[in-house]
């Protein structure tokens, strides 16, 4: 099957600062792929190159099997059949909600307010919103309308550039659900760019981690979280507990080849460190510090040998500082 979006060898630098260094990315048709990475890693540049707002120095972009950017080729944005949603939504301030949604449609359909109610419903808004002005909407509602506007012309690909980051925490989750559901219902291939790994892990079908202008790992969120290719990816997607490991004998397989003899470091997630008072504990440790977060508690522990590690346990089962607890490692290391 042709991918919904294929990016090959994309390069772009601004002045002497390279931003994209030969980036490759395949996005399967109909899926939501999240591109995550720290701020300034080139995510937005990638989206702008895919959208055709900017031209790369090298590389090709293919949308739905149709080449749109390549050597000597730069299809203008209006002929790429894309939808674009920005961080602030950028609803046209001189138009109503209906005027915004139908903006990309031919004049006759604009007059007939083609599919306005249907699209509003798709993004979870009442039809009554059609005649509101953008400033009469909350930030989350503006983002939903921005998505409806992007979907109205029936694009082959929707690009979301940090669409939830300007919303406060409460609105962010509900808006994200509404947007992800609407995209799933419409079956549109989507690229979501975000620096928020939790957002990426929870809403995407596929995850691509970007660093220094390239994609370092791509796959299902659950695989990336548990099987990151390196410590950087592991640390970006969640907290990491480093444990020194010694090899008496034998070897350990790692992504960089087998490790033999000597000492090494292995990493686990804090939720893999389970506190227990049962006899099957791996070691016993002393509780140094407790950070209560409500739903869970983070416990800092000192294990024999001066190893300090962090465990995450349910809020109602937290020990007290100074307690001695048993520690059990579950699952396999990263």
């Amino acid at each position: 099957m042709t991918p919904g979006l294929r990016v090959v060898g994309l390069r772009r630098s601004y002045g002497t600062t390279p931003v994209l260094n030969g980036l490759d990315l395949d996005v399967p048709t109909g899926a939501l792929t999240a591109v995550v990475g720290p701020s300034g890693c080139g995510k937005t540049t990638l989206l702008r190159l895919v959208a055709g707002f900017d031209r790369p120095q090298a590389g090709t972009v293919t949308i739905g099997g149709r080449a749109v950017t390549g050597p000597g080729l730069l299809v203008p944005p209006e002929r790429r059949r894309i939808g674009y949603v920005t961080q602030d939504g950028n609803l046209f301030p001189h138009l109503t909600v209906a005027g915004n949604i139908t903006f990309g449609l031919p004049r006759r359909m604009r007059r007939a307010r083609h599919r306005v109610d249907e699209l509003l419903e798709l993004v979870g808004l009442e039809p009554a919103y059609a005649d509101r002005r953008p400033d009469a909407l909350s930030g989350g509602q503006q983002q939903r309308v921005a998505l409806a506007r992007a979907l109205a012309p029936g694009p082959d690909l929707v690009l979301l550039d940090e669409p939830f980051s300007s919303l406060d925490a409460g609105l962010r989750a509900s808006t994200r659900h509404a947007v992800v559901d609407a995209l799933a219902a419409s079956g549109t291939t989507t690229v979501l760019v975000t620096h928020d790994q939790a957002e990426a892990l929870s809403s995407a079908d596929r995850l691509a981690v970007m660093r220094d202008g390239v994609i370092v790992q791509e796959g299902r969120p659950v695989d990336l979280y548990h099987r990151p290719t390196d410590r950087g990816v592991a640390a970006f997607l969640g907290e990491v507990v480093d444990l020194p490991a010694g090899f008496a004998s034998g070897s350990a397989p790692t992504p960089r080849g087998a490790l033999r003899n000597g000492t090494a470091s292995i990493a686990v997630r804090p939720e893999q460190v389970v506190l227990t008072d049962a006899a099957d504990a791996d070691v016993s440790a002393e509780v140094l510090q407790i950070d209560f977060f409500g739903a869970y508690t983070e416990v800092r522990l000192r294990a024999p040998g001066g190893i300090v590690l962090t465990a995450r346990c349910p809020g109602h089962l937290a020990p007290a500082v100074g307690d001695r607890v048993g520690v059990l490692l579950t699952g396999s290391p990263l």
């Binding site: 950028n90 046209f92 903006f103 012309p153 690009l159």
Partner: peptide
């Protein structure tokens, strides 16, 4: 904000 013009272009409207 130039984002408005870019959005318009992405929605299929020429320059």
């Amino acid at each position: 904000d130039p984002a408005f013009e870019e959005l318009s272009r992405s929605l299929g409207v020429g320059p």
